[in-house]
Amino acid sequence: MQGATTATDEISQLEEIAREIRRTSLQIIHRAGSGHPGGSLSATDIVTDLFFGGIMKYDPKNPKDPDRDRFLLSKGHASGLHFTTLAKAGFFPEKELESYRKINSPLFLSGHAHPKTPGVEIASGSLGQGLSVAHGIALGARLDSRNYKVYVVLGDGELQEGQIWEAAMSAAKFKSTNLTAIVDYNKVCQDNLTQDLKDLEPLEDKWRAFGWDTHRIDGHNMQEIHKTLKMPAHAEKPRVIIADTIKGKGVSFMEGQTAWHGVAPSTEDLEKALKELE
């Protein structure tokens, strides 16, 4: 029973960290006056568990440690979430977040991330590239006989890009079992619902057919996220976790709305949002 209690405590701690990350993400997007709140909020629980749930090993004081686990955010517009997470994980002081999306940003906290920022592996901004890059890193690990793992968070809209499926074929071909892709399946793109823009279903069947060890979870259930990310690697397949999420999760008036894809909250909206995230 003791163990179960501890686990529950850990989960509620992670949930609190996720709330804190949501608050800060919205605050820095508000301060910047532009950004992408919806897709930051939907991926928060997944990213929180990766960084704070003991899933990834990393040393924020040594961000280039060759043995670090790698994190890539292929849906790079969720940079508010990315930078907030890196700051809270200790890669740089939280105060630096003030320069997010601002000219002369000392750590280059651009609208989409770039490796000049500590903890960022590759530039993003054009959807569809992250899975291939992550796979290249996974192949590098194999060449160097290193045991690190590569995690890449993909957007659901981004799965409309053909390159994702090129990379899916490649990783299966090379049996890159050290690669885990997590699809932030929030069902909402910039101007349309994903299903109306170009439907992804049947999504699990697609990934299975492409040779991936495929899992589907509730992307806001921390217990489920944690359990799935903790699973030992598959013997010969790369892994995909399709996480059903809600765009704008945690803020009632943002949830499921295309309108909150790429708009910063006003001061009034921010106050309302922060109250809901207390």
Binding site: P66, P115, E121, I122, G128, Q129, S132, V133, A134, H135, G136, I137, A138, L139, G140, A141, L143, D144, G162, Q163, E166, A167, M169, S170, K173
Partner: peptide
């Protein structure tokens, strides 16, 4: 395989590992 975009990005990933 015949997927140049995937090849270029895979190369970029490999390059980040040295």
């Amino acid at each position: 395989g015949i997927s140049e975009g995937d090849m270029v990005c895979t190369a970029a990933g490999l390059a980040t590992t040295g």
